[in-house]
Amino acid sequence: MSSAITVRLSSGRSYCSGVLISPDLQAAEHTRTDLVLSCAHFLRGRTGPIKVGRAHVLGAVRIPRTDLAVLRLDAPAPPADLLRLSTSRAPWLAPTRTEGFGGGARHVQQRHGRVIAHLPFALGRNLRTLVTSAAILHNSPKAIKGDSGGPVIVDGEIVAVQALISDPLGYNLGIATVAQVAAHRGKIAAAVEALQRAY
């Protein structure tokens, strides 16, 4: 039986979520991979080792001008049914499923929602996290800290990864900004090739 595609990345006490992907970004049944797609903001300023389960991250490439990053592990993950990275943006009002390890969860949590808007770009409140080709979701349960980097799935394809939550004055509105993959698919493929050459 295949394992889950959503993984937990950890570095010291910090962590985020990510998703296993195939080298050609296509769907692949019961396949082992050493590639993870996640959020770039987790890598900002990080100098210590990053682990995914028992594997360590060998290297990472951040995709310019958006909150996406590809990481390569020193050992492949257990076999999983990998999903295709979508070539289309998430349709308006499409039902979504976001997976992640937010709130310190030991097992993957699912957040169901809908696409309520598209934005050419969005900025985090610290003005350091930029998301281009952003989509806005309304989720229930709400996406929370730690879900960042987890896959957003529509019709069995990865359309985005979780990037930002809206929590003015500490109140989570249930509104999440996600980094769509379709507009950056070529750069993601180039990042995979660069990591495979380097390691």
Rank of each mutant, 00 (worst) to 15 (best):
3 S>G: 15
4 A>G: 01
10 S>G: 01
12 G>R: 10
13 R>Q: 14
14 S>E: 12
16 C>F: 03
17 S>R: 03
18 G>E: 00
24 D>Q: 10
24 D>L: 02
26 Q>A: 14
26 Q>G: 13
28 A>C: 02
30 H>E: 13
31 T>L: 01
31 T>I: 02
35 L>V: 08
38 S>M: 08
40 A>S: 06
41 H>E: 04
49 P>H: 02
53 G>R: 09
53 G>S: 07
60 A>L: 08
61 V>P: 01
61 V>M: 14
63 I>Y: 07
67 D>M: 15
69 A>C: 13
76 P>A: 15
79 P>L: 00
80 A>Y: 00
82 L>D: 14
87 T>V: 04
87 T>W: 04
87 T>G: 05
88 S>Y: 13
96 T>L: 10
96 T>Q: 09
98 T>D: 13
99 E>L: 15
99 E>G: 07
101 F>D: 11
103 G>K: 02
103 G>V: 12
114 R>T: 13
116 I>N: 06
118 H>L: 11
124 G>P: 05
133 S>T: 10
134 A>K: 01
147 D>I: 08
147 D>P: 03
149 G>S: 06
150 G>F: 07
150 G>Y: 09
154 V>Y: 03
155 D>A: 15
158 I>P: 05
161 V>S: 01
162 Q>V: 15
170 G>K: 08
172 N>E: 00
174 G>R: 05
176 A>D: 01
189 A>I: 11
192 V>A: 09
195 L>R: 08
198 A>D: 12
199 Y>L: 09
